[in-house]
Design a protein around this nucleic acid. Sequence first.
DNA 1: ATTATTTAAGATTTTTTTATCCGAAATAAA
DNA 2: TTTATTTCGGATAAAAAAATCTTAAATAAT
Lengths: 144, 144
Amino acid sequence: MFSKTCEYGLKAVIYIATKSLEGNRVKIRDVADNSGSPEAFTAKILGSLTKHNIVNSLKGPYGGFEIEAKRMKQIKVSEIIFALDGDSVYNGCALGLSVCSDTEPCPMHENFIEVRKQLKKMLETTTIYELATKIKSGKSFLVR
Amino acid sequence: MFSKTCEYGLKAVIYIATKSLEGNRVKIRDVADNSGSPEAFTAKILGSLTKHNIVNSLKGPYGGFEIEAKRMKQIKVSEIIFALDGDSVYNGCALGLSVCSDTEPCPMHENFIEVRKQLKKMLETTTIYELATKIKSGKSFLVR
DNA sequence: ATTATTTAAGATTTTTTTATCCGAAATAAA
DNA sequence: TTTATTTCGGATAAAAAAATCTTAAATAAT
């Protein structure tokens, strides 16, 4: 469904959010361990998420990553996907055509309209705060 | 959304179906040209689709690929995806967890339930015949 | 200022996916 | 039975994605 970059990125952001809610800043190592992702790759992805202003980073001792509570209520899953994978989830044609629109559709185009509409809606209404609280309450898991 | 293998496979099957409706058998070269896919790769994918009994192949002169009209009304898009990509579209976790179920969910699990349900329904009700007729009527395109 | 800690960023390697190539097998027609 | 045509299947190659490594830059505490 998503690239590994996106999967790791989402899990990293969710984990950082849960720790930020507790008032803690986290190091790359900690993020990687608790999101079940490779450390070096996580570092690279977090660099990109920092540039996109999705997470906040501080260098040096006592540094690490964090997300303000206010911010994590604003950030939607769609923003993270856009930052890491671009808009392919939104605009990609199921059959890989470079042009596929309502006026020039591939044969599956209309079949996908409803599915895609619902997917968009979900990605654009789900916040990182919502996902982080599910982890904190023990209702769901980041590593399996 | 799908792998290239699946994209090419779907387009190939749809094209073969349109030609079979006209009573024509098609060669790999023809399929590749008219589905905008690499010839050698298309050949390999068609081999797999033949084994899965989705298309029918005949060797030698006047040979090629075909699909019976009866069969193309039975074959659902989901079958082709299963044959080529396996069940990842159905069972894969959005965050890549190896275990992610209603009882042990990732934080996005429940958000995806409705989206996935609708996707499944669409893939399991859309037939190759339906897609082929869209091409024949000129309402949609396979190459762009 | 120095040191230990931590992120930043680019180069490199590994793995997976995508794509090609080529000889073998099958078969219809002459 | 010979020939031309076509799929079959395994080996190989190229490209893209995933993952790692390495050095630099920043900074807090001493």
